[in-house]
Design a binder for these strands. Structure first.
Lengths: 197, 197
DNA sequence: GGCCCATGTCAATGCGCGTTGACTTGTCGA
DNA sequence: TCGACAAGTCAACGCGCATTGACATGGGCC
């Protein structure tokens, strides 16, 4: 990891020695760093620097790198805010988002990258299926309404994931007419799934 | 990497010293190993053992680990037989394939796993982007016809990838009415992209 | 105010990695 | 047949990593 951001810790800590706060800072830094660079390319030194604490605390507090990753994964698989989205604007919002570059600051991007990273790690791979079911399929199904069924959620989730991967691979944002055409078509595709029957 | 298989080399080599064959064995071993465990978790020693050759040959033949990965990636993303596909049956064929379970024995699955591994590593993601552009998007664009433009190929590729991920995560094949509904909808989605304008 | 344990710091250790260079050995042409 | 060069082997190096244990220090409690 090259450079991400300044330390996560609050500017004026109420106590200069607070194990709970330190632990939380490390965990938050780990979520950011693991999502950004994956398990292997993220060193505990990176995480400690991002958390503004010492490397040696990590094995002590989390039992090691794997323990930290597991806990960060659990913390990342949280209920989505999909219900808050405006359904009439959903497809276009998603399309616009997909036309942009992958923004690591976006928690959704972070979550997705994290899950993708987890998929490639044999230790954490089994967690992924359940995570996707809980975090993607179930919310989407509920959001679409009961009449939609599992199948529409499945298709929508697949398309969503596909565009996330595409964006991840693409790197840069789309520009000009290509962006316009892309957004139009993605909007149409998603509308085709969530719209009628 | 723990244990994969026996060395790839032919049992009775015609020549005991054959740089071309050794290079090819290393490359094939790299394709298998990288697909299985990703860039970071695969060591050159693993690959060399799988190829039945020496570690030191890899930097010499491929210029280093990155060079080997790049070449393995290129070899994996070979020009597809896309042109041979029947366009009128394309969407339904794909949909039926997606409704099934992911078959590890299928070279396409292996290829895809390789790409997914590449996508999650920041080092290799740019390489993957270029490779996908050259070997995936461009053929699709040509296949769709010039009027289609880059943008339709992009959308189609994203959808394709998304369903591959979904299938990989899902594990089991779909059955009964859910399968029918899934196939119908996927067919419609793909038709919507490759069909009209 | 002073003890003492929780908390944080620091240096050191061992390991696996990619890479390098010197060396050996096979093989093919003269 | 034999020499030269390609091909393969081997040991070692430097580096970054996670982890450990000894040490320093802050702050709540008596």
């Amino acid at each position: 990891m090259t450079d991400l951001a300044e330390p996560v810790r609050p500017a004026a800590p109420p106590r200069r020695r607070d194990a709970g706060a330190t632990r939380a800072a490390i965990l938050e830094a780990a979520r950011i760093a693991f999502a950004a660079t994956g398990y292997d390319r993220t060193s505990l030194r990176d995480i400690a620097a991002l958390a503004g604490s010492d490397v040696a605390l990590i094995p002590r507090y989390f039992g090691g790198k794997e323990g930290l990753f597991t806990e960060a994964l659990k913390a990342t698989i949280a209920p989505d805010r999909l219900r808050d989205w405006d359904r009439s604007r959903f497809s276009r919002d998603v399309a616009e988002m997909m036309a942009g570059a992958a923004d690591i600051a976006d928690p959704r991007t972070r979550t997705f990258q994290f899950l993708l990273q987890a998929a490639t790690s044999p230790t954490t791979a089994p967690l992924l299926g359940r995570a996707v079911q809980e975090r993607f399929l179930a919310p989407i199904r509920d959001w679409l309404g009961d009449e939609a069924g599992q199948e529409r959620a499945r298709v929508l989730a697949a398309i969503y994931i596909g565009f996330l991967v595409e964006r991840l691979i693409r790197g840069a944002a789309l520009e000009g007419p290509e962006r316009t055409a892309f957004v139009e078509r993605v909007t149409a595709v998603i509308d085709g799934v969530i719209g009628p029957g």
